[in-house]
C-alpha cells in the first residue's frame, strides 16, 4: 500500500478513504479533521469534526455553536483510532490550537502539517517535528527571498516609531486570529505596558484567547467618538481597515502592517503601508527546508503557496516531491489582502 492509497486528493480536499475522513475540507463533508481555526481550513457545516479543544472553541466563536453536527476534542499527542487508521494531533506552532495531523496506517506514517512556523510564539505551543515517511507541507512563503527576520527587531521598529511620532496613532493591521494576539504578546514581552486598542472586528477572538488562558494585558475597545484622542496609541485592526474611512479619524495615523508579505517592498507599497513589519505565522524558506529535513520523510507533498520552488528544492535534495496545487488554502494571509481597499 502506498501513501496515495491512504490519502487521496478530492475536490473537497485531502481524503483518507480508510477512515472516511477529509482533512481541512473546502466544502461540507460527513467527517472532518481540522488542523487549525483559520477560515480557509476550518469551515462550517461538516457532520463530525475532530480537532483540538482550542480549534473547536475558535470555530464555535466564529460560526456559532452549531457549526457542525458533532464535535470531538482531541489533546496534543493523544492517538485516536479510526478503523484501521491511527490519528494523532501534534502542535504546529501556527496559532492557538493549531496542529499537525499524523496518520498511521499499514506501517506508513504521514504527517499533514497544516500551516506552521518554527519560531517561538508566546500565544501557542511550539511546533514538534515528527519523523514520518511522507510529509505534507504548506509553502506560503516557499521562496528563498522569504527569510523572516527576528521578530524582536520588527516589534522594535514599531516601538521606535512610537517614540519618533508620539503624537500619531499607530494603526497596526494584522490578521485577527493568531497574528493580532501574538503581536500584543510580543509588545508586552518588550515591556510595552500601555493599553492596546482594538478595532471592533478584533474583540471576539481577543476575548476568546483570554478565556483560553492567554493573558494580553490591558486591551480596550476603540469607543465611538474616541478616535481623535488616540494619538500615540497602538490600535490593532484588520488589514482592510487601514485604508477605510474608519482609519482617517485618528490623529495623523501611521499605517503599519504585520505580515510575512511585508518582506517584499512592492507588496507593502501596493497596500500603502508606511511601516511594514515582517512578522509571519508561516514558516519562511529556511524553516521549510529545515523542517523537511528533520522529519526524515523521503516523500514530500506541497499543498499550497509557492510550491514550485519547494518541489524543486526537494528534488535536488533527492526527495520525491509533488505539488498538490490545492486551491482555496493560504487565504489567511491572502484574505487579509482581499479585504483591503485599493490604495490610490
Amino acid at each position: 500500500m502506498q501513501a496515495r492509497d491512504i490519502l487521496s486528493l478530492t475536490p473537497a480536499g485531502l481524503y483518507c478513504p480508510l477512515a472516511d475522513v477529509h482533512i481541512d475540507p473546502l466544502r461540507p463533508v460527513p467527517r472532518a479533521l481540522i488542523t487549525h481555526g483559520h477560515s480557509d481550513h476550518a469551515r462550517a457545516g461538516h457532520g463530525a469534526v475532530l480537532a483540538t479543544a482550542q480549534t473547536l472553541a475558535i470555530m464555535a466563536a466564529r460560526y456559532g455553536e452549531g457549526f457542525c453536527g458533532t464535535a470531538q476534542a482531541v489533546r496534543y499527542g493523544e492517538a485516536v483510532t479510526l478503523g484501521p487508521v491511527r490519528v494523532t494531533f501534534l502542535p504546529a506552532g501556527h496559532v492557538l490550537g493549531s496542529a499537525q495531523i499524523l496518520i498511521e496506517a499499514n506501517g506508513l506514517r504521514i504527517v499533514i502539517s497544516g500551516d506552521y512556523k518554527r519560531v517561538g510564539d508566546p500565544t501557542c505551543a511550539p511546533f514538534e517535528p515528527v519523523r514520518c515517511d511522507v510529509f505534507i507541507t504548506e509553502a506560503t512563503f516557499g521562496l528563498p527571498v522569504f527569510r523572516h527576520p527576528d521578530v524582536v527587531g520588527e516589534i522594535d521598529k514599531l516601538l521606535h516609531s512610537l517614540t519618533l511620532f508620539p503624537e500619531r496613532a499607530h494603526l497596526l493591521g494584522a490578521y485577527p486570529l493568531g497574528k493580532a494576539q501574538r503581536l500584543i504578546a510580543l509588545l508586552r514581552q518588550r515591556g510595552y505596558d500601555r493599553p492596546v486598542y482594538l478595532h471592533g472586528a478584533m474583540e471576539r477572538l481577543m476575548q476568546l484567547y483570554g478565556e483560553l488562558g492567554i493573558a494580553l494585558g490591558d486591551l480596550r475597545k476603540v469607543e465611538p467618538g474616541s478616535r481623535e484622542s488616540l494619538g500615540g496609541a497602538v490600535v490593532l485592526c484588520p488589514p482592510g481597515a487601514l485604508q477605510d474611512l474608519w482609519a482617517r479619524r485618528f490623529p495623523d495615523p501611521v499605517a503599519a502592517f504585520a505580515s510575512g508579505w511585508m518582506r517584499v517592498r512592492a507588496r507593502a507599497r501596493q497596500r500603502g503601508v508606511e511601516l511594514p513589519l515582517v512578522v509571519s505565522d508561516h514558516a519562511g524558506w529556511d524553516e521549510l527546508c529545515a523542517t523537511i529535513r528533520e522529519t526524515g520523510a523521503g516523500e514530500v507533498w506541497v499543498t499550497h503557496g509557492e510550491e514550485e520552488a519547494l518541489v524543486h528544492w526537494c528534488t535536488r535534495e533527492g526527495l520525491a516531491a509533488r505539488p498538490l496545487n490545492m486551491l482555496g488554502y493560504g487565504d489567511d494571509e491572502a484574505e487579509a489582502e482581499a479585504v483591503a481597499e485599493p490604495s490610490a
Binding site: 528563498p144 527571498v145 517584499v264 512592492a266 528544492w313
Partner: peptide, 15 residues
C-alpha cells in the same frame, strides 16, 4: 544560489 530558485524568486519579487 540555485538558478531555478533564483528565477522563480525574481519572477515573484519583480526587482
Amino acid at each position: 544560489t540555485d538558478p531555478v530558485l533564483f528565477a522563480l524568486s525574481y519572477d515573484y519579487v519583480g526587482d
